[in-house]
Amino acid sequence: MTAIGTLAAEGQASLFLMLAGVVLVVLLIGAFWYGSRRRRREAPPVEQNPVAQCRADSWQTYPGS
C-alpha cells in the first residue's frame, strides 16, 4: 500500500469515531431536554403536615414513643 492509501485507511476509523461521538452528544442533549420537559410537567409535590416538617430532623419519630 502507498502512503496515501495508508493515510486514507486510517482516516476512515477516525471519521467513524468522530461521527459516533457527535451522535452520542446529540443523544445526551436530547435526553436532557426530554427529561427537563417531563420534569416541568409533573405535579408539584404534596405539602406535608407542618408538625411533621418541623420534626423531620428529630430522633423521635412518634409523639408517644
Rank of each mutant, 00 (worst) to 15 (best):
A9K: 01
R37A: 00
T61W: 12
R38S: 05
N49D: 15
G21T: 10
W59V: 07
A52W: 11
R39Q: 11
A56D: 15
F32I: 15
L27N: 08
M1Q: 05
L28R: 09
V46H: 01
Q60M: 07
Y34C: 06
C54A: 12
I29S: 08
L17H: 15
A8C: 13
A43M: 11
G5R: 01
Y62N: 04
E10A: 07
Q48L: 12
T6M: 03
T6Y: 01
G5F: 01
A8I: 13
L15Y: 12
R38Q: 05
S65R: 11
G64K: 06
C54H: 14
Q53L: 11
F16H: 07
Q60P: 01
N49Q: 11
A9V: 06
G21C: 04
V23E: 05
V51A: 12
Q53A: 12
M1Y: 02
Q12K: 09
A3L: 02
V46P: 01
V26M: 04
I4V: 11
G11M: 02
P63R: 02
S14E: 15
V51Q: 12
V22S: 06
R41D: 09
G35Y: 06
M18Y: 09
E10W: 06
A31N: 13
T61H: 12
S14I: 15
L27I: 13
P50L: 01
P50W: 05
F32P: 01
E42M: 06
Q53W: 12
L15D: 13
P63L: 02
G30D: 01
R38M: 09
A8W: 04
Q12N: 12
E10S: 10
I4S: 01
E10F: 04
R55Q: 10
A43Q: 13
M18C: 12
S58G: 15
A9L: 09
F32W: 11
R55V: 05
L7R: 00
G21L: 08
Q48I: 13
R37P: 00
S36P: 00
A13W: 08
M1N: 04
P50D: 08
F32M: 11
G64H: 11
Y62P: 00
P45N: 09
L19W: 13
Y62H: 05
A52G: 12
P50S: 12
A52L: 13
M18L: 14
P50T: 12
V46C: 00
M18A: 14
E10Q: 08
A3Y: 05
L19R: 08
R38P: 00
A13P: 00
Q48C: 07
F16G: 01
Y34K: 07
R40S: 05
C54L: 14
W33V: 15
L17W: 13
G5Y: 03
E42I: 02
N49W: 10
L27C: 07
G5K: 03
S58D: 15
L24V: 15
G21S: 07
S14W: 09
R37N: 03
W59G: 00
F16M: 03
G21F: 01
V25Q: 01
P45M: 02
T6A: 00
V23L: 10
I29P: 00
P44S: 09
G64W: 10
N49M: 08
V26Y: 03
M18W: 12
Y62R: 01
S36V: 14
M1S: 04
G21W: 03
L28D: 11
E10P: 00
Q12E: 10
A9T: 09
V22C: 05
